[in-house]
Nucleic acid binder design. Sequence first.
DNA 1: CATGTTGCTGCCGTTTCGGCAACGGCTATA
DNA 2: TATAGCCGTTGCCGAAACGGCAGCAACATG
Lengths: 312, 312
Amino acid sequence: MRFHSPSIQYFHAVRRTGSIRAAARLLNVASSAVSRQILKLEQEVGSPLFERNARGLTLTTVGEMLARHVMNVLQDLDRFRSDVASLSGAWHGTVSIACIESITESVLPDLIASHRTRARRVSFTAEIMGSSDVLEALRRGEADIGIAIALRHPPDLRQVALKRFRLGALVAREHPLARRKTVTLEQCLAFPVIQALPELSIYHLLQPLIAQLSETPEPAIQANSIDLMRELAARGVGVAFQTQLGIGRLSRDAQLVFLPLDNAGSPVWSDLGIYVRAERTLPAFTESFLQELVRELGERERRENAAYPQGA
Amino acid sequence: MRFHSPSIQYFHAVRRTGSIRAAARLLNVASSAVSRQILKLEQEVGSPLFERNARGLTLTTVGEMLARHVMNVLQDLDRFRSDVASLSGAWHGTVSIACIESITESVLPDLIASHRTRARRVSFTAEIMGSSDVLEALRRGEADIGIAIALRHPPDLRQVALKRFRLGALVAREHPLARRKTVTLEQCLAFPVIQALPELSIYHLLQPLIAQLSETPEPAIQANSIDLMRELAARGVGVAFQTQLGIGRLSRDAQLVFLPLDNAGSPVWSDLGIYVRAERTLPAFTESFLQELVRELGERERRENAAYPQGA
DNA sequence: CATGTTGCTGCCGTTTCGGCAACGGCTATA
DNA sequence: TATAGCCGTTGCCGAAACGGCAGCAACATG
């Protein structure tokens, strides 16, 4: 089922690998064949598509436009294929997810497991990365569904849903703060804190608030792993900050206490966005999972905001 | 700039013409070439795409799926082309509009004229048809932008905007009703009325209301042309019904009087929807016109609802 | 300076494509 | 019922496109 010119597939491979010879290896063809198809494309478009650097190729402006078109075509071809397949009862395919670490503790594994019991022939690929990398992976067509902290999102992505979760402090049960119901940032900064490195978006949420307080926080630990920060907090090393999403099980085991964070009298929110490439129609099985994901995250949002009602 | 397999272009032509030989004539190639490409496609998809009837071809279910994919590809190719062209300063192309008759009196010509003064190299194609045909033309890729009465719209179309306009009675200046500020359906039915035929969507708006009144309206004239109905009303033949959109100029010439219609104490609305094919990104110049269209219709909606404030 | 890698280009066999003519199936009309 | 016209399909053959091989110059790396 390959009814598109080789040129666009070759172009796509060259764009991904950044090299004609590498693309040729990927496609199991001679590099000359790839080179010629690219030259032919450039002749037909009437403008160079790549800048030839000494070490590989880079897209020109026109090249990026074509890359966008080619991605639309190939992704839609993919959807067509799965549509045809599902017509003969074969409901299968792979859903590829790019997401931040927060949801790997319970949301994502729960959802995937539950989805697999109903649709056993749908596979999953999940990759953890930073928020901005999630958006980039979507834009490059390397993932179908993206979950990231909702900052500004580029116009070529579609924000399917936006759920807000309350940011809180995470402390061990024996911690002096553990008996409080809520906690302010100032109170936390009196203790050693486990800070997020700039690669985590929690950093960008908290840093402005900390800067406002103009108190230099007690030197503590910096990490770029939600998991690590949680484990450190559980051992009483300090105060960590995250949403309750990532600590469903651990807090039930009662080693950890989650304290909703207040700042200037109002909660601190962390906005979680679900994203999809805008110029694209998803295959049916991907769309189905996406709906469940939105529903589930909405459910969590509702539950948590009920547990910790609005305001201090 | 033809970097897609001939197969999909041939398929597209066959789908539109419903015949291999006709498609061949359209494409200036031998019919055998077209036939072979279709057969090859069917072999690669693994399922027939057309049903061979005695008189031409009809799409199968799989064929319709492929048609959708092919249309996505070709429309996106079109957008890519215009994107590349606009990069070298050439902002040109054709915007194709399918719309109902109501807006041909002033909205559409005003907009097109105004747009042409700014973007002189953008051409327009406008075709008048019934509301359901508008949606069908969009779905078949025969128009870029559709304007129709907003009933239920199929999921493969995107409703860009929805504007509501007040339905009213149209009478000559000398008509007994002409001195009123508003008018009810019952009052109108006491006089000869100019009824819309079922092909016009006004029919489907008014017929249920008329049926409720259970008075047989005085036999009068039925027509399927907004223009004709307006001219008839101007000559005092009877009461016509339409929105104020179509009578901007005539009512200023004071031959006609527009009386907002009330039914059971509340206004009767006519919802105008602007539609675009969902799985598609518009070329920049088309998108630009679309924005102006939405803005202008929104402006009219605001003005008219200010002129005839809510309620009786 | 040697070595490896890059993209590109003749040369040539293979595959694909398109035009021509003919065939069988069907409809409409006389 | 016979015939003319249109339909999609198929064999044949020349033309165009494609891909593999080997070799080129340009550049980076050591």
